Amino acid sequence: MALRLKDQLVGQVVDGRYEVLSRIAAGGMATVYLAADARLGRQVALKVMHPHLAADEVFVDRFAREARSAARLSHPGVVGVYDQGAEGGTVYLAMEHVPGRTLRDVLTERGALTAGEALAVVTAMLDALASAHRSDLVHRDVKPENILVGLDGRLRVADFGLARAASASTTAASVLIGTVAYLAPELVTQGRADARADVYAVGVVLFELLTGSLPFTGDVPAQVAYAHV
């Protein structure tokens, strides 16, 4: 699916404004592209939702509301949200482009970090999350893949609100299948959570940074999810 999206969008102009230059990454919810904003003359990260989500009207409505909330955040540790829109079957989010890599890439390359390095990472994460929590915005999908490490070494938290938008979709279960390792117990048992769920997820990330492994594993996602309870 991601390759098909790439073939369709690279070289195209989305919504009369964003020229898609290349594909950066693909995940369970979307494919992320490097794009040139013709209106403001800058490069952005363009997150394009996968077709099964873009076709879900409930998801698209929630996605738009969550994007507006995320756009109000202003913090050096949070990836900025610039724009959100839809053109035909393409539903997108234009965000700050952060050249570098993800915290997952760092873990894959290095394995466990030193205690000092791990504490520096989670301190930066908690500072960014606290800013969002003061604005009543909960991330709900904190994990190494959503922590960007810039070329300057600064950490930024990405994808605020997307997990909450996905929870409104009829395909939410498939979207969250890859993130069960970081789910707080109340998200597993009740499907809802507040800022404390983000703090719990940071604790799981800290465990992984210090040990190079996750606290809970299993053969199927449900087994991992309920190990948190």
Rank of each mutant, 00 (worst) to 15 (best):
L107G: 11
T108N: 12
E109A: 15
E109P: 08
E109V: 05
L113P: 07
L113H: 09
L113T: 02
L113Y: 03
L113E: 03
L113K: 06
T114Q: 07
T114G: 15
A115R: 13
A115K: 07
E117P: 08
E117D: 13
E117V: 10
A118M: 05
A118F: 07
A118L: 01
A118S: 13
L119Q: 13
A120F: 00
A120W: 04
V121I: 12
V121L: 10
V122G: 07
V122C: 10
T123H: 14
A124H: 10
A124F: 07
A124M: 07
A124P: 05
M125Y: 02
L126N: 01
A128C: 10
L129N: 03
A130T: 06
S131Y: 13
S131D: 10
S131R: 12
A132C: 05
H133Q: 08
R134W: 00
S135R: 15
D136G: 09
D136Q: 14
L137G: 04
L137Q: 02
V138C: 05
V138F: 03
H139E: 01
H139P: 04
H139I: 02
R140K: 13
R140S: 01
D141T: 04
K143L: 00
K143W: 02
P144M: 00
P144S: 04
P144H: 03
P144W: 02
E145T: 12
N146S: 11
N146A: 08
N146I: 04
L148S: 03
V149E: 05
V149F: 08
G150A: 15
G150F: 10
L151V: 15
L151R: 15
L151C: 08
G153P: 11
G153A: 10
L155N: 03
L155M: 06
L155R: 03
L155H: 04
L155K: 02
R156L: 14
R156D: 01
A158H: 06
F160H: 05
F160W: 09
F160L: 05
L162R: 03
A168T: 13
A168H: 15
S169T: 09
S169C: 10
T170H: 09
T170G: 13
T170V: 15
T171Q: 13
A172M: 10
A173R: 14
V175G: 00
V175W: 00
V175T: 12
V175L: 00
V175D: 00
I177Y: 00
G178Y: 01
T179W: 03
V180R: 13
V180T: 13
V180G: 02
A181S: 14
A181W: 03
Y182F: 13
Y182K: 09
L183T: 08
A184F: 02
P185F: 04
E186T: 01
E186R: 12
L187Q: 15
Q190T: 10
Q190Y: 05
Q190K: 15
G191N: 12
G191A: 06
G191P: 13
R192G: 00
R192T: 13
R192P: 00
R192W: 00
